[in-house]
Simulated scan of single mutants.
Amino acid sequence: MPTKSPLHPLLDEINRAAQAGLPFLAVTMTVTLPDICVSLASEDGRSNRDRYKNWCANHLGEGFSFLTPDDLYSIRCGVVHNGRFGDLQHNVERVIFALPDGNSFQNCQIGDAYFYSVVDFCRNFTGAVDAWFETNKDATIVQQNLPKLMQYRVGGFAPYIGGATVLA
């Protein structure tokens, strides 16, 4: 049986939040996933605008065909820093997410608006991250950066705490 990715708990929590009607949490974490991937794959362990956009261009594919990497970066910055979907000036001007109890949309554009069901958006995005990790998990730099990844530490995080599972 294959070992689960160290990203699995985060990706699982994102999808569970989306399904449980917690779209703010789900979407906010989802749009930060390219930052996490490029940080794992970068010599300096950091993300930046160009790395984020390159990751999106290379790994998101057809499931996000109406959004450019510039749109995605604008959405990420707007959501994380301003609580809005960014200053969309590229392919779309508005983003609309259908909630779990509403209509279902996947990668739709109507006029200047981009529509996606929050559950499908998160599931498709986390699927792309899973695929990226599976391809890159054995890269030396990814292996070097994995211990720095925020993750559950079962049994504690020595030398700071023992016994209890913590997030560190």
Score class of each variant (00 low, 15 high):
Gly78Phe: 11
Cys108Gln: 15
Asp130Phe: 02
Trp132Ile: 05
Glu43His: 10
Asn107Glu: 03
Val118Asn: 10
Ala41Gln: 14
Tyr52Thr: 02
Asn103Ala: 13
His90Thr: 06
Leu146Asn: 14
Val118Cys: 09
Gly86Leu: 05
Phe85Lys: 13
Gly63Tyr: 05
Leu67Ala: 01
Val38Gln: 13
Asp101Cys: 10
Asn48Tyr: 01
Ile36Pro: 02
Arg76Thr: 12
Ala139Leu: 14
Arg51Cys: 00
Cys122Glu: 12
Arg94Ala: 05
Val38Ala: 15
Tyr73Val: 03
Val142Tyr: 12
Gln143Leu: 13
Leu60Arg: 08
Val80Pro: 04
Ala128Pro: 00
Ala128Glu: 01
Asp50Met: 07
His59Gln: 04
Leu146Trp: 11
Asn107Arg: 04
His81Cys: 12
Ala57Glu: 02
Thr126Trp: 03
Tyr114Phe: 06
Ala131Ile: 00
Val129Trp: 13
Gly127Thr: 02
Val80Trp: 15
Ser47Tyr: 04
Glu134Asp: 06
Asp112Phe: 08
Cys37Phe: 06
Val80Gly: 07
Leu88Met: 09
Thr126Glu: 09
Ala57Asp: 01
Asn103Met: 10
Gly127Glu: 14
Gln106Ile: 10
Thr140Lys: 15
Leu99Gly: 00
Ser42Trp: 04
Phe97Thr: 01
Tyr114Lys: 12
Val119Asp: 08
Phe66Gly: 15
Asn145Ile: 02
Arg94Tyr: 15
Arg84Leu: 01
Arg46Asn: 14
Glu134Thr: 01
Arg84Pro: 01
Ala41Lys: 14
Glu62Ala: 11
